[in-house]
Nucleic acid binder design. Structure first.
Length: 261
DNA sequence: ATGGTGGAAAGTCCA
């Protein structure tokens, strides 16, 4: 299983297909597909043996999952997902479906913009509502295999950014955002990148600007939370840094989870 | 001081 903020699935199509083949990925959760369901490039994935489930309204946000081990019980958005904008809209930021017995959620958490922006309050409300929903899924079925994967737009530790001083007073590192993520651990989920890739300053995102990748000035914000029964089955996690290189990369790289069985 | 980047329904907004 893998998760990847592709920053436009149409722009990144060849890279994504190459990645799926090279890594032999059974399930890929994508974020920022930036495409409506109607315009999603389904056929190339189908030809490669995948089922395609997308959730996108327009050029903003958008999440999808492609799976070659089944895709059932599809849900767009989660119960209680907060709205944004005027008129209020439940944005295309969450997609749940079951693949080979694992409940996979592809998640694109709101950015937050700045600490004094309404978008920041939206981000915190969004995370709190997701936590409530996700805690409920485990309460209903404690042995459920649930994966909450995607772009969380929060760096859980100071060592998940290159220089904590640069981020003082900014989003992605605030105590409130980190507390919102800790609530998922309190609910019984394990952040599997931390377990399997504990090395500090190991990033999943580097901004396009200011030579951030060349300087290795990145952030670890693409995370993979697993329920207890699923966490036991995760034998390894790999952050595919190579995907940030070459022509036309996303600003995020894939995170691959090896799941036994 | 500015711009340094890249995506999209671009001519601006979002990250």
């Amino acid at each position: 299983m893998a998760t990847w903020n592709v920053n436009s699935v149409r722009t990144r199509l060849d890279r994504v297909l190459d990645f799926l083949a090279r890594e032999q990925v059974d399930v890929l959760a994508m974020q920022e597909t930036k495409v409506s369901d109607e315009a999603f490039p389904r056929d190339p994935f189908i030809d490669a043996g995948y089922r395609v489930v997308s959730h996108g309204f327009d050029q903003w946000n958008g999440v999808a999952v492609v799976s070659r081990i089944g895709a059932v019980d599809i849900v767009r958005g989660f119960l209680g997902q907060p709205t944004w904008g005027d008129p209020p809209v439940v944005e295309a930021r969450a997609l749940g479906l079951t693949c080979g017995g694992v409940r996979v959620w592809s998640l694109y958490v709101p950015n937050g913009r700045t600490l004094d922006d309404p978008h920041y309050r939206y981000k915190l409300a969004w995370l709190a509502a997701l936590r409530t929903a996700a805690a409920g899924w485990l309460a209903d079925e404690p042995t459920a295999q649930v994966a909450l994967v995607g772009d969380w737009n929060v760096a859980p530790l100071d060592t998940d950014v290159w220089d904590r001083a640069v981020f003082a007073g900014r989003t992605h590192v605030s105590a409130a955002e980190r507390a919102a993520l800790a609530a998922f651990v309190d609910a019984g989920y394990t952040e599997t990148t931390r377990v399997h890739v504990p090395a500090e300053h190991t990033y999943t995102f580097w901004d396009y600007q200011q030579l951030r990748f060349a300087r290795d000035e990145g952030m670890r914000i693409d995370l993979a939370y697993a329920s207890p029964t699923l966490a036991e089955r995760v034998t390894g996690v790999r952050i595919v840094r190579e995907e940030r290189k070459g022509a036309g990369p996303s600003d995020h790289v894939p995170v691959v989870l090896d799941v036994d069985g």
